[in-house]
Amino acid sequence: MTTENMINKMFTVNSLKKIIGEQNNRIYKRTVSSVIEPKNEVSTNLDALKIVYKYMSKNHRNEYFYKNTLINKILLGRHSVRTSTAIRELPILNNILDLLIINGIGQVYEIKTGLDNLLRLQDQLNAYYMVFSYCNVVTDVSHLSAVKELLAKTPTGIILLTNRDTLHVEKEAVEFNDKLNSRTMFNVLRKYEFENILMSEYGILPETTQSKYYEACFELFERINLKKSQEYMLKELKKRNPIDETNYKQFKNVPKEIKSLVYFSDYKNKEYNELNDFLESKYIKGDS
């Protein structure tokens, strides 16, 4: 298995949980061993993670690296984790939206790394505009010219992940509402979320059989003005924020290298304590 494949396997929500619980140490130790250099000083597991992440920055900026950069620099750097919410891998029609950040408005971030192609990009954006009014493509210099040409006369924003791992806005996203679609918005919502919306708008829920309940709810949702229904939807999606007063302090201390993994893991106090114990523990070298 290549170093790049091992990194991809290591930086996932489930893999981190297993590594902390010492259920998946083999892939972790092999990954660290494959990137470590004699000059590196590795005392703790945090040191080891930092070395792997630095390797990613220079050699393998995969989708996780992009998402983690967006979480660190936009959700946490530009906004506040207390007042904004990030949602990853949201299904919309036949697509999976990479990252959504809600802070008053909903901003879509579709990631195209240097490892990706642009074949489906237009179809993906068309789907996302049925639900959200602001979309951005985040890419690197290898795709920049092609993305600029493709999106020149569109409302879609373009963000460059520079070689210094900063985010440079090449083109600002402009509000675009022409494709908003009630059905597609409704399908994004969970049952209790669209019920909250209907109660807010009408004060009642439909009385019908279980088999007809979903469509009856949609018929009521469809009657709401499109922009108002989008506002309702964003308000409900924003409530999915996994960070609150009970875990804010613990989350704030999570190292930037694994910030998005922890954010999307819904950790409780017990998990944060286990994470801290792991990071502070002595790194024990494994087989390469």
Rank of each mutant, 00 (worst) to 15 (best):
N59D: 10
V32T: 10
T162Y: 07
L180W: 10
C135P: 05
Q210W: 10
K227P: 01
T83N: 14
E41Y: 11
N95G: 00
T162L: 09
S133E: 15
V174T: 14
S33L: 06
E149H: 07
K212V: 07
N225A: 14
F278M: 03
V32I: 15
F176W: 15
A127H: 13
L70D: 02
S260M: 10
I284Q: 12
S33E: 14
L205Y: 09
I102L: 11
A48G: 07
I105Y: 06
L97S: 05
E219V: 03
I51N: 03
Y134R: 14
N253M: 09
T139V: 06
L99C: 11
R164A: 13
E22R: 08
I27A: 02
M56I: 05
Y55E: 10
V137W: 03
A152G: 00
Y53V: 10
D244W: 08
N103M: 02
R88C: 03
T44H: 05
N196G: 11
L119C: 00
I105V: 08
K268T: 05
V32H: 07
Q124Y: 11
E195D: 15
I51W: 07
R240F: 13
L180K: 11
V32K: 05
T166S: 09
N95P: 00
Q210D: 15
E215W: 04
K270I: 02
L70M: 09
N196M: 09
S229M: 13
N163A: 12
Y263K: 04
N269Q: 12
K39W: 05
E170D: 10
V254N: 01
R164K: 15
Y213H: 08
Y272C: 00
I7K: 07
D277A: 12
Y263H: 09
Y283T: 07
T31Y: 04
R190E: 11
E231S: 11
K50R: 14
L150A: 14
T156M: 11
E4I: 08
N273Y: 04
G203T: 12
Y128N: 13
Y214D: 09
Y109S: 08
I243T: 02
K73C: 00
L46P: 00
T3E: 04
V174P: 02
K171N: 11
K238T: 09
D116S: 13
I158L: 03
L75E: 00
K58V: 01
E110G: 08
K285A: 12
L49N: 01
E41D: 07
N181K: 06
I204T: 15
L119K: 15
S84G: 03
R120E: 05
